[in-house]
Computed example of a mutant assay.
Amino acid sequence: MPRATNDGVGLYYERVGDGETVVFLPEAGLGAWSWGWQHDAVAGPYESLVVDPRGTGRSDPGGDYAVATLADDLEAVLRDAGVRSAHLVGHGLGGAVALAYAGAHNRARSLALVTTPASGEVVDTDALGQLFGESWPEVAFSNAYVGVAPRDEIAGWRELDDAGPEARERLFAAYRDFDPGALYEYTTPALVLGAMESPVVPEAACETLATGLPRAEYEQVEGRHLAHLEHSRAVNDRLLAFLDGA
């Protein structure tokens, strides 16, 4: 079980496949399960590396949960794994971490930012909190959802992988405080995907992010906050095409 350490906090990650490394960073509080459909699509032509953020899954809790610290955690993971450059794929807070990483460190080859806003000020953390309650499917999926997996099976994965309440609240606070600064300074090639019906992040805020990044492409994705699961085939096709060209 590979583990990196940053400032005394143990960080769990898994890697599979060969080729260029693609790193997956989850939404605040969600475990590695939430990238399962993209992980499987990427592993093979690429190496897939999935990170459990601090306080989540098999990583240790504790310390500072600021976005900059989470970016430093990622640097510790890539250094431990011997990865010299990587494509970063982040959802929500994971996208904020990917962007912060690209601004502070030098291993980011490209960024794929899924339902990530231009500022944490627009994030509805009350709606995000509902993603961890009984009504979570209503936040996660549209009424048209037919299932990438049975909901009770997903619930079982979540019980094992998702962050507990204390870590979750600290991750939510970090998300609210997210401020990337001057977007024109981020010159890493980027793909921004905005979920059209997310109750957590307005789709317009995702488009604003893409517009501000000098080397970004933008595309809408049907569905609610976990649109990349509900419409995984379309998202995977778009992600792979972006990675192949990056």
Rank of each mutant, 00 (worst) to 15 (best):
A205D: 13
A104L: 15
M1R: 12
L229E: 14
N106D: 13
D179L: 04
V16H: 15
P53N: 00
D162Q: 07
R170Q: 15
P53T: 02
M1H: 13
S135H: 01
E166Y: 05
L25K: 03
V146F: 13
L160T: 00
D124R: 08
L11P: 12
A104W: 05
D72A: 15
A163P: 07
A210C: 05
E20N: 10
A100F: 08
L88H: 10
V23F: 14
Q130C: 09
L213R: 07
R176H: 11
S135D: 06
P202Y: 05
Y218W: 12
D80S: 15
A195I: 02
R107C: 08
G95P: 14
T211I: 03
P137S: 06
H105L: 03
L243G: 01
A216E: 05
A81H: 08
P61G: 00
R151I: 03
T5E: 14
D60M: 08
H231A: 06
A210Y: 11
T69M: 03
G62K: 12
E222C: 01
G156V: 13
R84I: 06
A41M: 01
C206R: 09
M196V: 04
N236K: 07
L78V: 06
R54K: 06
S232H: 13
G164D: 05
S34Y: 10
L11Q: 11
T125F: 04
